[in-house]
Structure formats: structure tokens, C-alpha cells
Nucleic acid binder design. Structure first.
Lengths: 158, 158
DNA sequence: CAACCAATTTAGCCTTGGCTAACAATGCGG
DNA sequence: CCGCATTGTTAGCCAAGGCTAAATTGGTTG
């Protein structure tokens, strides 16, 4: 463990850099991101399925594959996983449905997504860019920040 | 292809949902996120190595493992990858260095990271939360949005 | 200078999330 | 009601990014 015993070396003369955060805190940042990665794809699928159900009354694997730009095989495999996780129910060759838990996740995810999207628009980001950024950002924004974004958007719109 | 021929079904009576984006655009959102995922870990490693070099004069595998909260074996494997990608140079059992390209990536990544972090703070997010969120968000913010964030922060600080 | 401890690397395993190709079921048009 | 296009599934491949355990190297210290 060579870390964090070494006092600051007098090496730099460049622009001022922030100090490195303490190891434990730094580590927690990365852990949080890794954890988010584990759930975000799941959430994206569930959210999309929820949207399809709302807007079209059904969610077919082919539609999901299209919208995700992914092969049907990938979707099929993922659906099995969602099934095991108790998020969707499906009979073979039939349209999908969300379980209660799945519906809850879809709703939450939807909510976060909307807050981020509206926030970006309120900030002045053009729609098509806002959509793309929101998709990536939504899984990495804490509840705390989310609340602040919400507040910002509300004030802007008021 | 059952998609996008079906006109709106009159199903919902709940809260107003935005319409689904056209398939092509929707697909692009997900593709962008997938692409970001491919590079973001790499960027995180390179950025961290750059930070360690700046702040401590050297970047050791053990420090990286500590700060990332990951095993040394994982770091070792990743370093080999970074090597193959021409981002770092390393002799076995020795400290690491960034190539020109690696330095450039570290700098860019650092820049994005700082903009997002400062933006979040300017928005009113407490520091420790801002750090965590910034880590996750930095790879999903477009240049366009980044510029807007920068501007916002500048105005706030002025 | 030998021996031990810390750091690094290697080997081998696992899960995720993609893919293609081949096969199976559905359901519609004639 | 038969045939065939569309849709869904399965099998088997691959790369990435984790892990543990074991082997190696390097440095320090008694």
C-alpha cells in the first residue's frame, strides 16, 4: 500500500489541479458507477416495455429489437433474464407484460428520465441532443441531484 | 415489422405521456449510450492514471486498484489493454506512463469531468454528491450540452 | 546476503450483453 | 386450409471486465 502516506510531491507547475479525493471516497465514486451499470440496461428494457405497452397496448420483441437497434436474439435472451428477475411475464410467442414490480420500475425509470430530459431542455439544450444525453445520464443522477433538477425546471417553466 | 404503422391506440386515461420518438431516432439514443460504455472505463483508467502522475509523480497499479476498489489482477489486465491501445507505456513491475495519445485523452476526460463537477456544484448540489454524479455523468454528456453547462457555471460564478 | 513482504503478473474462472445461423411457431392471404 | 413471411427461440460464439489463487519479482531489513 504505497498510497496516501506519500505527502504531496512538489512536481507540478502546470495549471492548478484539484487535490485527489481521499481513497475511500474516490473508490465509492467508481463503485457507484459500476453498480449503476449493472442495473441500467435492465431498467432501459423495462422502461421501454412500459412505454410500448402504454403507447401501443402491447410490447413485442421485434419492436424492442428495432428501437434498441439490437438483434431479436439479444432481446429474447434479455427477456428470459427479466423473467427470472420477476419483472415481466411472458408466454412463448406472445406479447410481454410487466409484473407489479416491473411496472413500478418502469414508472420510476420513466420519472427519472423525464426529469432529466425536461431539465436539459430548460437548460437550453436542443431537443434531439437532450434526448440522447438524457438516455445516458438518467442512470447516474442521484435522487438528491434529481430533486434539484426538478426544482430548476419548475422555476424556469414558471 | 409491426412497428410504426399502428396509429395511436386510444388506450390511456392516465397522465399525459410524451409520444414515442420515431424508431430511427430512438435507436440512435441507445446506440450512443452503448458506444459510450465501450470507452468510458478506458477513459476512467486513463484519467485516473493522469491524475496520479500529476499529483504524486507516479502511477502504481496498487494505487489504481485501491482508488477504483478493484483487484490488482483486474488492473493488471486492464493495463495490458491500455498498452495494446497505445495509451500507456509500462515496463513490467514498473510504474506507468501515458503516451502522447494517452495524455491527450486524460486531459480531455479531465476537462469534461471538471466541467460537469463544477456545473453540479453551481447548480447547488453538495460536493460529495456532485463528485459521485459527475463520475457517472461525464461520459454521457455531449459536447453541446457540455458547452451549455460551462456557460451556466461561468455566469453563476461571475 | 538471505529471507521475507509487498507488489505485480499470470492462469483460469464467471457473468453480461452482444452477434449469427438454424430452427420453430404464428397467423394471414390466397 | 395450406403455404409462406414474419416473429420468436435456441445454440453456440465472442469480448469485456470482474474475481481468486498461484507464481514471480523487487526491495528492505535483520
Amino acid at each position: 500500500m504505497s498510497d496516501d502516506s506519500t505527502p504531496q510531491r512538489p512536481f507540478r507547475d502546470g495549471p492548478s489541479h484539484d487535490a485527489l479525493p481521499p481513497v475511500a471516497q474516490h473508490a465509492r465514486q467508481y463503485e457507484t458507477v459500476r453498480n449503476a451499470h449493472e442495473t441500467e440496461l435492465i431498467e432501459d428494457y423495462v422502461e421501454l416495455i412500459g412505454d410500448l405497452l402504454d403507447h401501443r397496448g402491447e410490447a413485442r420483441a421485434a419492436d424492442i429489437a428495432n428501437r434498441m437497434a439490437v438483434s431479436q436474439a439479444t432481446v429474447s435472451k434479455m427477456i428470459r433474464r427479466l423473467n427470472e428477475l420477476g419483472l415481466v411475464t411472458s408466454q412463448p410467442y406472445r406479447s410481454l407484460f410487466l409484473t407489479d414490480e416491473g411496472r413500478k420500475m418502469a414508472q420510476t425509470s420513466r420519472g427519472r428520465h423525464d426529469i432529466v430530459l425536461h431539465f436539459l431542455r430548460a437548460l437550453g439544450v436542443p431537443d434531439s441532443t437532450a434526448r440522447i444525453d438524457a438516455e445516458g445520464m438518467e442512470h447516474h443522477v442521484s435522487d438528491e441531484t434529481l430533486a434539484i433538477m426538478q426544482r430548476f425546471t419548475d422555476e424556469k417553466d414558471a
